[in-house]
């Protein structure tokens, strides 16, 4: 079963209390305070503080990018880099990009409970800045695909709980979405559902509707 990526970062007050903002206007701050940053874990906390408060603050301002409803530009860049490293086109299996993993991830985030959403966003942020700890030079999205795969594998095997939890959580969400995509089934030898037509759940219908609205407004 896929597990939530629980980085130990508590959701911001604005997320966990009070009536939630309408999802279409979902522009909020993932409030990673110094205390919460340290709660992520000793090494990670030092790393994050070392990166500099200015960049942290920028990253914490999550403004949905393009027609996405949750992922901001920076987060999407990190996610794309991860998808590219874990799910490249290999001649038989399609690329993660071509099966729409970023879109599926955004929808999962949008529909997730607020606490899970905040944790997953924090996990993406940690992933972006963590490479120096594992021998990478620069931020995750700037590394070569091979270096990204090496860093991610090192995180999975890390003795530090926080890195392992971040990597396991992201891998589980993406693996579930990738192999649940019909485009992968033929290569796997999976004959798929007996019910011929997919029936999107209400959350998927609402998500698609809001994306369409955003696309119309942006056109």
């Amino acid at each position: 079963m896929p597990s939530r990526t629980d980085s130990g970062v508590r959701p911001a007050r604005g997320i966990e209390k009070g009536p939630p903002a309408p999802p279409v206007a979902y522009t909020r701050r993932v409030n990673i305070s110094r205390r919460n940053t340290l709660a992520v874990g000793g090494v990670a906390g030092l790393l994050l503080l070392g990166i500099g408060a200015v960049r942290m603050r920028e990253f914490a301002q999550v403004v949905p990018h393009g027609d996405f409803l949750v992922l901001g530009q920076r987060e999407k860049r990190t996610l794309d880099a991860l998808v590219d490293a874990l799910f490249p086109a290999d001649g038989a299996l399609p690329s993660g990009e071509s099966v729409g993993l970023a879109r599926a991830f955004d929808e999962q985030l949008w529909a997730a409970p607020p606490a899970s959403r905040a944790d997953i966003l924090a996990a993406l942020m940690l992933l972006e800045y963590v490479p120096p700890i594992f021998g990478g030079v620069g931020t995750f999205s700037k590394l070569s695909a091979a270096a990204r795969a090496r860093v991610f594998d090192a995180m999975l095997r890390s003795k530090r709980d926080v890195f392992c939890r971040v990597a396991v959580g992201l891998k589980q969400i993406l693996s579930l979405a990738y192999y649940a995509a019909p485009a992968t089934w033929g290569v796997l030898g999976y004959d798929g559902p007996w019910v011929k037509s997919p029936k999107p759940p209400p959350s998927a219908i609402r998500y698609a509707h809001l994306v369409n609205e955003k696309q119309r407004d942006g056109a």
């Binding site: 079963m1 896929p2 597990s3 939530r4 990526t5 629980d6 599926a104 999962q108 529909a111 997730a112 409970p113 899970s116 997953i120 709980d161 939890r165 396991v168 959580g169 969400i173 579930l176 979405a177 649940a180 559902p193 007996w194 019910v195 037509s197 997919p198 029936k199 999107p200 759940p201 959350s203 998927a204």
Partner: peptide, 26 residues
């Protein structure tokens, strides 16, 4: 009639936390 045997669609319908919920330490 709603059960389409697609994993993501059905997680969204019948799984609390959409499969993302874990114990405190993950």
């Amino acid at each position: 009639d709603d059960f389409d045997q697609r994993e993501l669609n059905m997680l969204a319908r019948v799984d609390g936390g959409r499969g993302l919920d874990t114990s405190e330490d993950g």
